[in-house]
Design a protein around this nucleic acid. Sequence first.
DNA 1: GGTTTAGTAAACCATATGGTATACTATCGA
DNA 2: TCGATAGTATACCATATGGTTTACTAAACC
Lengths: 122, 122
Amino acid sequence: MVYYRSMATAETAAAAGASELDRVFGALSDPTRRRIVSRLSHGEATLTELAEPFDLTMPGLSKHVSVLEDAGIVHKWRVGRSRYCRLIPERLQEADEWIQTQTAFWNQRLDGLQNYLEGEDQ
Amino acid sequence: MVYYRSMATAETAAAAGASELDRVFGALSDPTRRRIVSRLSHGEATLTELAEPFDLTMPGLSKHVSVLEDAGIVHKWRVGRSRYCRLIPERLQEADEWIQTQTAFWNQRLDGLQNYLEGEDQ
DNA sequence: GGTTTAGTAAACCATATGGTATACTATCGA
DNA sequence: TCGATAGTATACCATATGGTTTACTAAACC
């Protein structure tokens, strides 16, 4: 089941120099943007709906959403004069996998160390 | 069907300064620091060992490691005139869990939508 | 003791970031 | 058509960031 395609934002963002993971982690490093992601994880929303819980001007909110869009975390489209947003989980999952890979290596190494200390490795 | 409610979750805890997740995600948003984490996921290293693959001055490398340290991702200690670093996986796993929570909510919602479309929900 | 090695501290620079205000475009409703 | 609504564009500001160079401290080696 395909929920979206094409991702025009990924191309424009790639031209800007920073890598995909740079932008994803960078986007998540701001608490306002994490709250936006949290909100969107529960369903689509317009920009004004997103702005509501924040003490932020519309241009400010709009810029945050653009950062999420450039990171490929959020897809935005137009309905009348409103802009709707929804989450794109794939990029988030790539970031997730990167972290898991690192911690897996580390834990594997610790397991090896423990085996060694227990003499099971010799 | 209600897709979300309120979301005053962990944000109240992050009242002052940069929160833990801010620093963890911010630390991972730089490619040099991700390479350092990758290196450390395979085992401890001194700062000079860490610096070796990079085209970076020592002060530059040292500052990157400090960022990882402030984020709680890396522990640093002294042996003679060397500084050793090792990974602290716990903070990384917290970041991991945050992402998983968001994508889980989203996928859950999509499952609900699919059930609805297949008529299993009525 | 003197020199090299490992790293930190401080000052500095260019650019990025998060925020604002103001002006603008486009759509909806009366 | 006219005004309100939804959002973008642009310009601007203060601070943060990634990087440098130049000192400096502390341990190791001869």
